[in-house]
Every structure is written in C-alpha cells, then in structure tokens.
C-alpha cells in the first residue's frame, strides 16, 4: 500500500517542548489568569506593606530577641495561596469541565508528559509571582517601617533565605492544586480539598493539639517556618519545612499523574 503524505514529513517525536508551548498558549489566552495573578501581587504586597507600616517597635529583651518584621512578607498569604491554588486546580479541572482535556490528550497522548508540561508552565510563572511578591513586600515594607523600629536587611543572617523561601510557597501551592485537580477532576471538590489541607485542618488541629500536628500543614509551614528570620523551636525549621512542602507537592503530582494515566479521559 502506498502512503500519501499530506503534510511534509517531520523527523522526531513530540516532546516536552511541544507540550509546554501548547500549555503556555492555553495559560496566556485566558484573560482570567492574568487578572488573578495581578490581583495576587497587588493584594499580597498591599497587605504585607500595611502590616509592616503598622509594626510597633519591640519593648523588653525577650520581644527584641524574637522581633522579626521580615516575617510579614507573607502577611497576605491567605489571599495569595487561595488564588494561586485555585488557578492550579483549574489548569486541570477547567479542561475536564470544558472537554478540552480530550483535545489536549489527543495532541499529547503521553499523559505524564502532558501533566509535567502543565506543572512546568504554571509553576514557573507562579514562582516568579511569588518571588516578586516577597521581594517587593520586603523592600517596600522596610521603607514603610516606623523610624524607631529596627530595619532588617537582606544581608542580615537568615533574612535573604526567608524572603527567597517564602517566594517559593505560592508556586508549591499552585503545583499542589494541579495534583489535587488531577486526582478529583472536579473544580469544587479539588478547591475544597486544597483549602482544607492548606488551612482549615491545621486551624482545627491547632485548637486541640497546639503545634504538634499543625506544624506539618502548609500554611503553618509558610508563616512559621519559611518566612521567619528568627527561627522558632516549636515548629519545623525553615529547610525542613521547605522539604516537607516539596514532598507533599511531589506526592500529589505523582498520584495525579498515575490516575491520569490509568483513567479514561
């Protein structure tokens, strides 16, 4: 049998490059994504700077020792993680509710590759947004600190680490959203699960058991481990907290990927 070639033959095989370009065009072409990212930056920076502007100078040796205005770079994290987490969820569930998932998997039948492309393409901008938020909040917030309050500097011990690690939090939450979205495939249940895991459960647990269990939950890690320049021994240390968050993210993406491969689209 002769095979007629209608399009010029092309060597090779589709791969991450094609899949990522496809996801990038999809992400960019929904106006809601841009608005939501903009809202995240403006909202989080505003909350952080206002909090720092209202910070009172510490009194007493103990207060001075634990004084940590850098911690306020994540003052708006409750807002930011909701928006980025929901966007991450929608990267997957928006495709299921609209039927786009079938067009996506027809173009990229390797489902793990399709999920990887989504994670890379959404995680990258989310990381940039997170770092912009924390650095702008830190610099603008420091300028807004009252004159009698000690001003932290990026050169001080642990301050640069706190600002940098805090900036990764949003990207990690966004990726957790993608993983949970791939697991539930429904927007409402995925956002509910994510919010429960991020801060409802730790708040409830904190009421009963203090920090013993709550310290392992994302929002507590963000506010008390990642973003502190004066570490607190009751919670996870900054790098352990970061490692735990990375572990959650990897586990959720791995389970999501496995289910995506096993289930019918």
């Amino acid at each position: 049998m002769t095979t007629t070639t209608y399009a010029p033959a092309r060597a090779g095989h589709y791969g991450l490059r094609q899949a990522a370009r496809m996801e990038w065009i999809k992400l960019r072409s929904l106006r809601s994504t841009t608005y939501a990212l903009l809202l995240t930056v403006v909202g989080m920076v505003t909350m952080g700077v206002v909090t720092m502007a209202n910070t009172k100078a510490p009194r007493g040796a103990e207060k001075i020792a634990s004084f940590d205005p850098t911690n306020n770079v994540l003052a708006g994290v409750a807002l930011g993680q909701l928006i980025i987490g929901a966007l991450g969820v929608l990267v997957i569930t928006g495709e299921y509710s609209s039927g786009t998932i079938r067009a996506t998997l027809a173009a990229v039948p390797d489902r793990r590759l399709a999920l990887t492309a989504k994670a890379v393409v959404f995680g990258g901008p989310a990381l940039v947004v997170g770092e912009v938020v924390t650095f702008v909040t830190f610099l603008a917030g420091r300028a807004a600190l009252a004159a009698d309050v000690p001003h932290p500097s990026l050169g001080d011990p642990d301050v640069l680490r706190a600002v940098l690690l805090s900036g990764t939090y949003l990207a990690l939450v966004g990726l957790m959203g993608i993983g949970i979205g791939a697991i539930t495939r429904h927007t409402a249940s995925a956002i509910g699960t994510l919010v429960g895991f991020l801060f409802v459960l730790p708040l409830l647990l904190a009421g009963f058991t203090g920090t013993t269990v709550a310290k392992f939950f994302p929002t507590i890690i963000a506010g008390n481990s990642l973003s502190v320049s004066v570490p607190d021994s009751d919670v996870l240390s900054p790098w352990v907290g970061f490692a735990v968050l990375c572990l959650y993210t990897a586990a959720l993406l791995a389970v999501g990927g496995r289910l995506l491969v096993r289930r019918d689209a």
């Binding site: 589709y14 094609q18 370009r21 496809m22 039927g99 067009a103 173009a107």
Partner: peptide, 26 residues
C-alpha cells in the same frame, strides 16, 4: 478527530484554541 462538539474552553478564542493545538502537534 472530532469526537464531541465542545472540546474547547469557553473563555478562549477559536484562534487561541487552535494555536495551542498547533503548538502541541508540531
């Protein structure tokens, strides 16, 4: 393949939908 009518996101333009597929398909 045309498998069902709506396999596109309602918020995306027809051109962007196809541009994304073109990128994914090389």
């Amino acid at each position: 393949g045309l498998l069902e009518a709506r396999t596109f996101h309602p918020g995306r333009s027809a051109r962007s939908h196809l541009a994304a597929l073109a990128a994914g398909g090389g």
